[in-house]
Nucleic acid binder design. Structure first.
Lengths: 119, 119
DNA sequence: TTACTTGTACTATCATCGTAGTACAATCCG
DNA sequence: CGGATTGTACTACGATGATAGTACAAGTAA
């Protein structure tokens, strides 16, 4: 998986799980680039993409911050839509392998049980 | 989606749903290439990949056929494993979007209801 | 203003991937 | 055997995508 995709996921995940909170500042483009031994542009593109998605806000000369916009109702709807699309792709892919939606459900339920037993 | 992937899925799906049965002959590499207006090599690669997966068998000078191997117990186990891997990827991807396994289950169940209501 | 920090635009390079073209090898069948 | 049919190996081209280098622009703060 490409660097930029890994980074995007990591940030999204950090925000989704509350490890990065609304208003919090992220590392500088250059700083993070140095830390990850990556070009600054790569980080910049990730920040830009996440800004377009409405989950980051960037102010020149200041830095990049976790936005509050993604908590808005309209964004939650967007988000829901993305989940539906993900499930669609998932069902389709499984179908091409010869699995039914029920097969998926079974598998997913047994996976959920495993998760909850670890809690 | 690239041609070869589309073709692979189509064939897998046809076999999974019984539209292509064990022992049945598939079109010649060249013939299918002509039909799909595609290079013969593209078809050949798909056939080769599906043979490696054990769901096709090819005999030079004769043609390519649906194998019986994929009905064997060992292959069904392989297949099950692939489903698990798919579900893993799915859970992970959803997690990066901030969705839990339960969210997926809900969405999948409502999707299943829609399916059954159409039957 | 001026120096400094921040993000950004543009370009080039490199790798990867998908597809096609052409030539080859194995097999069948008369 | 010899021609026809099958799949296969090798190569090359084109497109796309990811990353890096460099230079620029916007904002901050002394």
């Amino acid at each position: 998986m490409p660097l930029y995709a890994q980074l995007t996921r990591a940030i999204r995940f950090a925000i989704a799980t509350g490890r990065l909170r609304v208003g919090e500042q992220l590392p500088t483009v250059r700083q993070l680039a140095v830390d990850l031994r990556v070009n600054a542009n790569t980080v910049a593109k990730v920040y830009a993409e996440l800004e377009r998605s409405g989950i980051l806000e960037t102010r020149r000369g200041v830095g990049t911050f976790v936005s509050a916009r993604h908590l808005a109702a309209s964004h939650r709807n967007e988000h829901e839509k993305h989940l539906k699309e993900l499930v669609d792709r998932f069902i389709e892919e499984a179908g091409a392998m010869g699995f039914s939606t029920d097969d998926l459900l079974d598998q997913l339920q047994s996976r959920r049980k495993k998760e909850t037993s670890n809690v």
